[in-house]
Design a protein around this nucleic acid. Structure first.
Length: 431
RNA sequence: GGUGAGGUGCUGGAGUGGUUGAUCAGGCCAGUCUCGAAAACUGGUGUAGUCGAAAGGCUACCGUGGGUUCAAAUCCCACCCUCACCGCCA
């Protein structure tokens, strides 16, 4: 959510500030009307309440003194009726007001490029060279099926489309990648590892911005307000929901492995083959809470931490900054990391690193107690950030496709071998 | 799932309808004292909204949401959570 103060003081320029983002201009105009009405009605109600409180105190005093307080009680009762009616109006306004506010997307950071869609994104850097193959590189679903380590058919039988069984080396590699990534981030990048619940409640999903707008993308547990977590961003960011942190706690950095569950509503026909787009996938997530003035630098650092995983695994990638129109609802600035996939002859997203500034912190009420220049304490919203470090399934895909050999076998990156019991390649068993 | 107990401010812990945003103690901050510290003493120490140029008012908040009442932390209802025991179970 955007701050009310900000909306008020920048009301006229909001359409410009939110250009290329999806929002309802009509409801923004309505916000302006409601803001004025809300304050007008609120002031009136509170004045009546103040009078009633005074009368009630008078009643108490008179009753104690055994005096007659009938007049005060009657007057207070009348006021109570008016208060109730006006309060109902306040609640209506408040509900509509809030509905508008929580549906407005974040204002992009000034460094975010212009643009309506992914064509407006800008490649900021490229690392590594796409490998040169003496043969036509295969997509991972062909490689994995031939090696007997990816089983799409049985997954479809057990559950349905967009699920995969990893078996043998694929399962081992997946487990190794998780351990490798967590070790790297905790030992070298200063993150604290957490293993959060994989099921989250509606309040948490509201806090990070998935609800109410994107309910269709989630799996909801029947008859509850619990959902399968679509990303560890949700449980980990909400670790500090409704908290006031101490200034000396910041910056807080967490990393977490979780499976992620997405209904992928509207994704029909996209990436139907292979591991790229699944209802269930594994991810190691990086989450940071910072002071407002530290978030831009923390965003660069977090993105570097994710890039380091790719570099250690010798996977060519590029960093892209998303333009205004291609960014997610809650984000102020997003870098995507795209890994080279020779089997598809394309760079594909493997990590998305975003700075949400105070947008999520306002929704989730995550604050920090700070001391002002005047020596007085005050609460400020923190800035929250997160990024994949990395998506495990897609990393597995990248290894299979980049390290494949002419005979259909796949080498294992050196950095990963200690996590695989020294295994250096995946090869179809001769038997 | 069942039964019982409980959820109050940074912490502990009072408070069962009336000037209670909340006794008291601890913590923390500032001051006095001291060469300095401790101790002692004094003062301060929640959040949000709203009015106001400011000073300063006002309103709301004692797990959450309703209800009763002139008045609710206190009474009633529902729900959530915690703890204990039972059942079940990885």
């Amino acid at each position: 959510m955007l701050a009310r103060d900000f909306l008020r003081t920048h009301f006229a320029e909001m359409p410009h500030l939110l250009r290329n983002r999806t929002f309802d201009a009509g409801s923004l105009a309505r916000w302006g009307e409601l803001d004025a009405e809300r304050r007008r009605v609120l002031t009136a109600v509170e004045a009546m309440k103040a009078e009633r409180n005074t009368l009630s105190a008078e009643v108490g005093r008179k009753k104690k003194a055994k005096e007659d307080a009938t007049a005060e009680m009657e007057r207070a009762k009348e006021l109570g009726v008016s208060v109730a009616a006006q309060e109902k109006r306040v609640e209506e306004i408040e509900a509509e007001f809030f509905a508008i506010e929580q549906a407005l997307p974040n204002v992009p950071h000034e460094s975010v490029p212009e643009g309506e869609d992914e064509t407006g994104n800008a490649v900021l850097k490229t690392w590594g060279e796409p490998g040169v193959f003496s043969f036509t590189p295969k997509p991972h679903w062909e490689l994995g099926t031939a090696l007997g380590i990816l089983d799409f058919e049985r997954a479809a039988k057990v559950t349905g489309a967009r699920f995969t069984v990893l078996s043998g080396e694929a399962s081992l590699l997946s487990r190794a990648l998780i351990a490798f990534m967590l070790d790297l981030h905790t030992r070298e990048h200063g993150y604290r590892e957490v293993l959060p619940p994989f099921i989250v409640n509606a309040a948490s999903l509201f806090g990070t911005g998935q609800l109410p707008k994107f309910e269709a993308d989630l799996f909801r547990l029947q008859g509850t307000d619990w959902y399968l977590a679509p990303t560890a961003e949700v449980p980990v960011t909400n670790l500090h929901r409704d908290e006031v942190l101490r200034d000396d706690q910041l910056t807080i950095s967490y990393c977490a492995y979780t499976p992620c569950f997405r209904a992928e509503a509207g994704a029909a026909g996209k990436d139907t083959r292979g591991l790229i787009r699944q209802h269930q996938f594994d991810k190691v997530e990086l989450v940071k809470f910072t002071r407002a003035e530290d978030s831009a630098e923390a965003h660069e650092k977090l993105t570097r931490d994710a890039e380091t995983v790719l570099e250690r695994l010798e996977l060519p990638y590029r960093r892209v900054v998303l333009c205004r129109g291609d960014m997610g609802f809650s984000s102020a600035k997003t870098y995507d990391l795209e890994v080279w996939l020779p089997g598809q002859n394309a760079y594909r997203e493997i990590s998305s690193c975003s700075n949400f500034e105070a947008f999520q912190a306002r929704r989730a009420a995550i604050r920090v107690k700070r001391t002002g220049a005047d020596g007085k304490g005050r609460n400020e919203y923190v800035h929250t950030l997160n990024g994949s470090g990395l998506a495990v399934g897609r990393t597995l895909v990248a290894i299979l496709e980049n390290f494949q050999r002419a005979d259909g076998s796949v080498a294992i990156p050196a950095a990963l071998r200690p996590y695989c019991g020294g295994l250096s390649e995946i090869r179809r068993p001769s038997c």
